[in-house]
Amino acid sequence: MKKTMIAGAVGAFLAFGAGTAMAAAPDWGKVEGKDITAFYPGVSPLEWIQKGTEHGGARALKKGETCADCHSDEAGDMGKKMASGQKIEPSPIPGKAAFIPVKVQAAHDGENLYIRFSWKQPAASGAAKMDDKNPVKIAFMLESGGKVELADQAGCWATCHTDSRTMPGADDAKTKYVKGGSVAEGKFYDLYQWRSGENKGYNGYVADKRVMEGGNALVSAEGKKDGDNWSVVFTRKLAAGDGDVKLESGKAYNFGFAIHDDNAAGRFHHVSLGYKLGLDTDGHIKAAKQ
């Protein structure tokens, strides 16, 4: 009798939990989307984009313009130049996709933020697998208040440096980092990643170094492939712990994402330019309450 009562109570609890989660998830068919091109960046670290003799946009950057202001409409063309080795890519991968069109949607329910990424799988290059465990990885980063230098203008590029691993001649142990980064001082990026082979989500940060775990905001990360189409949904709490960015209605946050396609690793990914994620306010991606 006791076993039956316990089993029934557990079943009711699980059913309630599942029902609550399903009720909280947004109807993606009713959520506005933003089409963003993730492109192959080659060897274009922060130091390169700031060097006027190599990057024509360095002058505009110094004047306060954003990378997206200049390049959002030509991201695909930039990816073609770099993936082919025509520009700033000393080790081109034959057949590497130059860019990936991605639809980004966001919504919240007052407690959680939901972000959905959807895209069509590009053709495989046939190159050797860098990450044999994970055919696809997708990550996004958030930054609050522009405390990271150039985060308002260059998105995630503030974490990409010439001495980071997989850059030509760099130390393989050197991760992404923020110059002068400090979680205690709020000078960091909040980092989230989903890995297809492991079917697992990660929540960390990038400050003086990249840390893949330890965050408290991630609730779930779920991905699926339907034919050639991927969709990945991250759910994270609006509230924040150490290394997490606190999200509030009426505010906008610096936002960028990257896709490691074709079993890629390190810098051989596709990246977005820097955008704004607005909660109940203006932004390139708008997260309205559902």
Rank of each mutant, 00 (worst) to 15 (best):
T4S: 11
A7R: 12
G8L: 09
A9P: 05
V10Y: 03
F13W: 09
L14K: 04
A15H: 02
A18N: 04
G19E: 03
A21E: 12
A24K: 12
P26I: 13
W28Q: 11
K30I: 09
K34M: 11
K34S: 13
K34N: 05
A38T: 07
A38K: 13
P41G: 02
P41K: 02
S44N: 04
P45E: 12
P45G: 10
T53L: 12
G56R: 11
G57K: 03
G57T: 10
A60F: 13
A60N: 11
L61M: 13
E65M: 13
C67N: 00
H71I: 05
D73I: 09
G76L: 01
D77P: 04
G79Q: 11
K81C: 11
M82K: 14
A83N: 01
Q86G: 13
P90A: 01
S91P: 00
K96Q: 12
K96P: 00
V102R: 06
Q105M: 08
A106L: 00
Y114W: 11
F117S: 07
S118Q: 15
S118T: 15
W119L: 01
K120W: 04
K120I: 15
Q121Y: 05
P122N: 06
A124Q: 08
A124C: 01
M130E: 13
D131Y: 06
N134F: 06
P135W: 06
K137S: 13
K137N: 14
F140W: 09
E143P: 00
E143Q: 15
K147L: 08
E149C: 03
A151N: 05
D152G: 14
G155N: 08
G155W: 05
T159W: 03
C160I: 15
D163L: 14
R165K: 09
T166E: 09
M167V: 10
G169C: 06
A170F: 06
K176E: 12
G180I: 04
G180M: 09
S182R: 09
V183D: 06
V183W: 02
E185H: 12
G186N: 00
G186T: 03
F188T: 07
F188D: 06
Y189D: 00
D190N: 04
Y192C: 11
G197C: 12
Y202A: 11
Y202P: 07
G204D: 01
G204K: 02
D208T: 02
E213M: 04
G215F: 00
N216T: 15
A221I: 10
G223D: 03
G223T: 08
G227Q: 03
N229Y: 11
N229M: 11
V232W: 07
K237L: 00
L238K: 04
L238C: 01
G243F: 00
D244W: 01
V245R: 00
K246R: 14
K246H: 08
E248L: 02
K251D: 07
A252Q: 12
Y253V: 01
N254A: 07
A264E: 01
A265L: 10
R267L: 10
F268N: 14
H269V: 07
H270I: 01
S272R: 08
S272P: 03
G274N: 06
G278Y: 01
D280Y: 00
H284V: 09
I285Y: 10
A288Y: 02
A288S: 10
K289P: 00
Q290D: 10
